[in-house]
């Protein structure tokens, strides 16, 4: 029994540390990545995983219905809202012609289709500040 509890506690500790690391990755991604799309890509995935780990650790640690149901609800909200919000920001960025990083490979078909869409267009206005 005691051994199992120790293993569980270690597992919870590892989950929490990993969650913190993913949150750090999200911040570093936002800081280091070259354009709004790469930053968002980084942010969306790592934030969801980071908070997911933290909440999962809480669920395992407290093992109460009250904590568990709230943690699960929070995970569900995060997992539902982060992708939707990212999609909205990404779409606006794309349609309003925010400049992509210079190393980005483009797809001509997509560009041609984009031309048929509404929204203001902007040519790539120089390099982005790093």
């Amino acid at each position: 029994m005691a051994g199992e509890t120790v293993i569980l506690e270690v597992f919870i500790f590892v989950l929490m540390i990993l969650g913190a690391l993913f949150m750090l990755v999200a911040a570093l991604g936002i800081l280091r990545m070259p354009d709004v799309f790469t930053r968002m890509s980084c942010n969306a995935k790592s934030v969801t995983i980071g908070l997911g780990f933290l909440l999962f650790a809480f669920m395992l640690h407290f093992r109460e219905l009250g904590v568990g149901s709230r943690a699960l609800a929070t995970i569900a909200f995060i997992a539902l809202t982060i992708p939707v919000a990212s999609h909205r920001i990404g779409r606006s960025a794309y349609l309003s012609g925010v400049s992509l990083w210079e190393g980005t490979i483009r797809d001509e078909l997509g560009e041609a289709l984009k031309g048929t869409r509404e929204g203001p267009h902007k040519e790539d206005a120089g390099d982005e500040k790093r």
Binding site: I30, N43, A93
Partner: peptide
């Protein structure tokens, strides 16, 4: 958009 992204992280953190 970049600034909004930071604000979003502010919210999730």
């Amino acid at each position: 958009g970049d600034r909004m992204l930071s604000a979003q992280l502010f919210g999730t953190s």
